[in-house]
Write a protein that binds this DNA or RNA. Sequence first.
DNA 1: TGCCAGGCCCTCTTTAGGGCCTT
Length: 228
Amino acid sequence: MSTSIKTFVFFDLETTGLPQDNPKVTEICLVAVHRCSVENPPRDPATGVPQLPRILDKLCLFMDPGKTVTPKAAEITGLNNINLAKSEKQTFDARTVALIQEFLQRQAQPVCLVAHNGNGYDFPLLKAELVHQGQDLVGQVYCLDTMKALRDLDDYDCPPGGSYTLSALYRRFFKEDPKDSHFAEGDVLAMLVIFLYKASELLEWASTKCGTWAAVKPMYNVQLQQTG
DNA sequence: TGCCAGGCCCTCTTTAGGGCCTT
């Protein structure tokens, strides 16, 4: 399979917990970048860190998960049942799905969702939330897991015992900690900068090794949300 | 009652086991 992706949509979820908890989403952030902004990105001459594209679309939403946020998740994300309820956030409902659909459809097609450990976490969880609403993404949507891709590309310079967490990769490439770790937008922007740093290799990798959204299975079995 | 994520990667591997990675 060879793909000609026009838009990369970097995204991250903050949630109530890990997969064994059948988690629900508390925050989603999507940042869409056209292919032309990924090819040959400019770098800060002093630090070598790639500069964020001037043109990018951003969608960040918080939501009431409708279940208890685990203490660990609340600790690392700063999101809990009290502050989300106090802010009167909506659940992940049909309007949330519509916003995400519109956001994706206004991008140049086809789009590729990009997430760190996306195959193991973000993709199946987003799929579960969509299935819960009786919906799914429309059109041809591709998926790229930056952890899998960077591991594939790392054969030649992986440090022994090197970690592939988002923050460890950021420290390895840029010698500093990423900002706003475990804020969805912070993690998305850290992933975007890492992607830009390895842009030529990742674009080549993406041309033949992307997955498809259609092949993503929900993280867990969900019952259809009753409407009306 | 008892279950409790799972695909990927590495190695002391392939008739397997254990750690990683995501909140």
